[in-house]
Design a protein around this nucleic acid. Structure first.
Length: 796
DNA sequence: GCCTGGTCTCTACCC
DNA sequence: ACGGGTAGAGACCAGGCG
């Protein structure tokens, strides 16, 4: 027996003979990669009896009778738990093999005394992690015996024979330090249409590690079999803990898998010998003993960046400048490969891509690691999981700690309810405007009024008025005591975050420890802020429409009360959305308003921003302001939308700059006229005219075919695969008929066929006018030529 | 058959 | 595969007109 200290990287399980054993993949402080087997943890689930049935020996016998020899029911016992806050007696049914939980769940549900079956849908590995309070990427000390088990690519295999305890964080340590990370990216030769693994070759596999990057090439390796074997060798040699890529779950791995099986080579890259990458139902690819992380999942969450290509994201995050690298559009890869003079450029492109990917891992993994250690979901899955599931796994852990049973996942139709309040602003320019924000409005409401599925008074239950908080407008009631599950969880999140923030105060901003803790408090904030939306999500285990509805009702009441008080103070309110108020920046009155909200209403509110000048278009959610720091903030307007061409967005931003900084309408009008003139004279590159729109379904599934759908259909006909989620770039070309029939994928279009009139009338002018009409400028004024551009025709 | 206005569909945004 | 509120463009369609 010995003590082994290790960091948990991933967990999985195997069934050996009659039982399952958990596999904990880890690494030690001295850099060994280890595998710990833990036997004896048994899968189980709960049975809740119908009303009027007590749980006695008869019921237990009925359950025991379901037992099958392959995985017998080894225990049925009566336990005390809570369900939606109420004490319940439940039967805990334990078996041997995880797959049998499903078998017994179905059989048990048919028994007469059974009301419902719970927690049968929590997978075995997660069950183990939850019950043992074990989190990925944290450090543990286990009592183990060294065992000799072949078949795994690790430095040591152990059997856990005693305790397994978390090693408390003495100093703040980076969970990613000394982990080996490898990025990879493949290039495929596809002359016509999208790459097809049955037809097309992999020509380059680029890899990148801390040591640098290299390209494995088909021309050097001689055959594709050798290429893939060389790649496999590289992985086994570097032995990465984390493999990162950009969209590799949907492209690189599936392609390599199919290609390998066609070529008869093994893609044996995991830490279990013979294990190939496996695609799960959600499309995530798992590799035994390694964390395969698709960074595209994280890139998708970046706001303010519409085109999420690797190049754009790397540029945006300062990982690699577009100007300092090679960019080859995917449809020109064959051309670069075939031309011996261009081939090295293609190699450089592949290396630039894989280096960008490696660089992105530095940007995304630290936050991902914190999400993993806070939610308990392994890193590879947490990156791919939606916000709702990230929160839900944390809630499941919280429920376990409180003896609360986890509600089953049931399919319900979505049900909508009234949300937030948005004021309609008057069009016009205002000076010195302060934006006040309620701090964490929805979580605060939930805490203050004890909102949650277990505190909600359902139906016509008799509860006296002073025992409940009653939501305005909708009338839903919530017990004031005791603290509900959601309030408890929120308070825990808030305290957790407060503690981190006070630790942060003692650290040097910018130091590794600071950045680490900052990521952790961000991860917790994400969870806290997701609680409201989670309650309104019909797929949630703890779904509670009334709760969500009550929260928004209280929110509307809050902002209305604040507006009324502002007006009472003589403070002009220009605009407001959900939890924000745009008011005249009269220091004393603003301070009085803040004091009122905090002291009389009991909510925190703060000045978020001050605009020197702000322009409201008259529409909700569409305005732009110049902050006191000289920054132009654009909200909702075309300039920040991804579905307008670059030129239109650029024009609008420049118009805003001229109007807000220089205050000159005249100059802005002249500027727009000049751009229109440039466009008509062919001085604008085609790329600035491309319109990008996301395909949200397969082209055939649309009721109404928009331009991007028609463009996608053209691509499809040419053999390109188009799939939901893809952005389609198109331009409008000259011709007759519906606009959508004049959409052409930009990769097929040439500058001379572009319909300039469309861009003038439907892109540049509307974008510019959105701002300028506020200042009284008409469409015709924009269409007139500016001074110095008039020709004889203007006078005729 | 063509024009017009109202409605529906679609996308992307805000908070 | 977390919520509702919103703007705006273009497709679609019914009804009026001649």
């Amino acid at each position: 027996m010995e003590q082994l200290t290790f960091q948990l990287l991933d967990a999985s399980y195997e069934v050996i003979g009659p039982e399952a054993r958990v596999l904990l993949w880890g690494r030690t402080k001295t850099g060994e990669r280890v595998l710990l087997f833990h036997r004896g943890f048994r899968p189980y689930f709960y049975i809740i009896p119908r009303e009027g049935f007590s749980l006695g020996s008869e019921e237990i016998e009925q359950v025991k009778l379901l037992s099958k020899p392959k995985s017998p029911i080894i225990d049925v016992s009566v336990v005390d738990r809570k369900f939606f806050g109420r004490p319940v007696k439940a039967l805990k049914v334990t078996t041997m093999i995880p797959e049998y939980v499903r078998v017994y769940r179905e059989a048990a549900a048919k028994l007469g005394f059974v009301e419902r079956v719970l927690e049968a849908d929590i997978r075995y590995t997660m069950r183990y992690l939850i019950d043992n309070n074990v989190y990925p990427l944290r450090w543990y000390r286990a009592t183990v015996n060294r065992v000799e088990k072949g078949g795994y690519r690790v430095d040591g295999t152990y059997e856990i024979v005693g305790s397994l305890e978390e090693v408390e964080e003495e100093e703040i340590s980076d969970p990613l330090s000394d982990l080996r990370i490898m990025a990879f990216d493949i290039e495929v030769y596809s002359k016509e249409g999208s790459p097809d693994p049955l037809r097309d070759n992999v020509i380059i596999i680029a890899i990148s590690t801390q040591e640098g990057s290299k390209a494995i090439r088909l021309d050097v390796e001689g055959s594709e079999q050798n290429l893939i074997k060389a790649f496999t060798r590289e992985i086994l040699k570097e032995d990465p803990d984390i493999i990162v890529g950009y969209n590799q779950d949907r492209f690189d791995w599936p392609f390599l898998k199919e290609r390998s099986s066609k070529l008869g080579v093994k893609l044996d890259v995991g830490r279990r010998i013979g294990a190939q990458p496996e695609t799960s139902v959600y499309g995530h690819v798992s590799i035994a003993g390694r964390l395969n992380v698709d960074l595209y999942n994280f890139a998708e969450e970046i706001p303010g960046l519409t085109l999420k290509t690797l190049e754009e994201v790397a540029e945006f995050l300062g990982v690699k400048k577009k100007s300092e690298r090679v960019i080859i559009p995917w449809y020109r890869i064959p051309e670069y490969w075939d031309d011996p003079r261009k081939r090295e450029t293609l190699i450089r492109y592949a290396l630039d891509d894989v280096e960008s990917t490696y660089g992105l891992s530095g940007k995304f993994l630290p936050f991902g690691a914190q999400l993993s250690t806070t939610t308990g979901i392994p890193l590879d899955h947490v990156m791919a999981a939606s916000t709702g599931f990230r929160l839900e796994w944390r809630l499941i852990r919280e429920a376990y700690k409180r003896g609360e049973l986890v509600p089953e996942r049931v399919e319900r139709p979505p049900a909508s309810y009234t949300g937030a309040l948005v004021l309609k602003p008057e069009p016009g320019i205002k000076e010195n405007v302060a934006v006040l924000d309620f701090a964490s409005m929805y979580p605060s409401i939930m805490v203050k009024y004890n909102v949650g599925p277990d505190t909600l008074v359902r139906g016509n239950e008799e509860v006296s008025d002073d025992e409940v908080n009653v939501a305005p407008m909708v009338g839903h009631r919530f017990r004031k005591t005791p603290d509900g599950f959601f309030k408890g969880v929120l308070l825990r999140f808030l305290k957790w975050r407060r503690d981190i923030k006070s630790r942060l105060k003692r650290l040097k901003p910018g130091s590794p420890e600071y950045l680490l803790l900052d990521q952790r408090q961000r991860a917790i904030k994400v969870l806290a802020n997701a609680m409201y939306g989670y309650m309104g999500w019909s797929g949630a285990r703890w779904y509670c429409k009334e709760c969500a509805e009550a929260v928004t009702a209280w929110g509307r009441e809050l902002i209305l009360t604040a507006i009324n008080h502002a007006r009472k103070l003589g403070l002009k309110v220009y605009y407001g959305d959900t939890d924000s108020l745009f008011v005249d920046y009269d220091k004393e009155k603003v301070e009085a308003l803040i004091k009122y909200v905090e002291e009389e209403m009991g909510f925190e509110i703060k000045i978020d921003k001050i605009y020197k000048r702000i322009i409201f278009t008259g529409a909700k959610k569409r305005y732009a302001g110049l902050t006191v720091d000289g920054i132009i903030d654009v909200t909702g307007l075309e300039a920040v939308r991804g579905d307008w061409c670059e030129l239109a967005k650029e024009v609008q931003l420049e118009v805003l700059r001229i109007v807000l900084i220089k205050g000159s309408t005249r100059e802005a009008v002249d500027y727009v006229r000049r751009v229109i003139n440039d466009l008509r004279s062919g001085r604008i590159p085609l790329e600035k005219l491309v319109i990008w729109k996301t395909l949200t379904r397969r082209p055939s599934e649309y009721k109404v075919d928009g331009a991007h759908v028609k463009a996608a259909l053209i691509l499809e006909k040419m053999g390109y695969k188009v799939a939901p989620g893809m952005k389609i770039g198109y331009v409008i070309v000259k011709g007759h008929g519906k606009l959508s029939d004049r959409a052409k994928p930009f990769i097929l279009a040439s500058p001379d066929e572009v319909d300039i009139d469309y861009y003038v009338e439907k892109q540049i002018i509307p974008a510019a006018l959105r701002v300028l009409q506020v200042l009284g400028v008409s469409e015709n004024e924009l269409k007139m030529r500016s001074r110095g551009q008039r020709s004889l025709f203007d006078f005729m």
